[in-house]
Amino acid sequence: MSLHDRRKATTLTSPGRGGAAVAIDDVTMRFGDRVAASGIRVDVAPGEIVSVVGPSGCGKTTLLRAVAGLLTPSEGSVKVDGEVVDGTPEGVGMVFQHFGLFPWKTVEANVAYPLRLRGLPKEEIAARTRELIGMVGLSGFEKSYPHQLSGGMQQRTGLARALAVRPRVLLMDEPFGALDAQTAEVLRFELLRMWEEHPITMLFVTHSIDEAVLFGDRVVVLKGRPGRVHEVIDVALPHPRDRAVARSEEFAALRERVWSLVMSPDAGQAG
């Protein structure tokens, strides 16, 4: 189906590639005596969006940090395009819950940060920064500092920065969790629209069941302490995922199903 077409799409953000494959293979995360996640196995195909939901403390953010190379699995391995992750792999972008913007840098400088680190020529940095800022709808705010912007605009900046590296994998750490409901809603559909234009692999960690179903090609439900994979649900909703999809009966049914899985008494504990 469309997965194949998506991968073929040659775009600005992902020249000639539809994203990388992510393989989380039997990963256990331990911090001292505490086990945060145990025996997690998730494969993400190139260009696929996999949402990860679960109650607080189920280890979903820990898992995302392992894929980002910020944490090393105690057991098992994480691979991006077949390469074992050891430090953040090239082509992996991350969006942080609390934006992670440098307060002393302007919007422009925050977005240009990854490009500067790569030592690209000045003109190229300027051109790409302008393009990215336009893409997230922040033209005119190039010289603003983060504290002068609303939360939504700060996260737009965070998104532009994550896209600056032309990511093949985008890691989303509850990206809309710190925003008010309306702003989050607007940004969700904008991000989905951008993704339709430049489809790349996405691992989407969230508290929101709506968000998980809306974004995911599949939804992974983590449960228990330590967190384990409780269930994986295929989301056969049509693309593009717009407001009409979010209003459909299929969406509501899937949402109910994920809800009851997340809320059901801990079956994951026994396994």
Partner: peptide, 8 residues
């Protein structure tokens, strides 16, 4: 963490 993710 942002710095590490960007391989600074």
């Amino acid at each position: 963490e942002v710095a590490r993710v960007h391989r600074s």
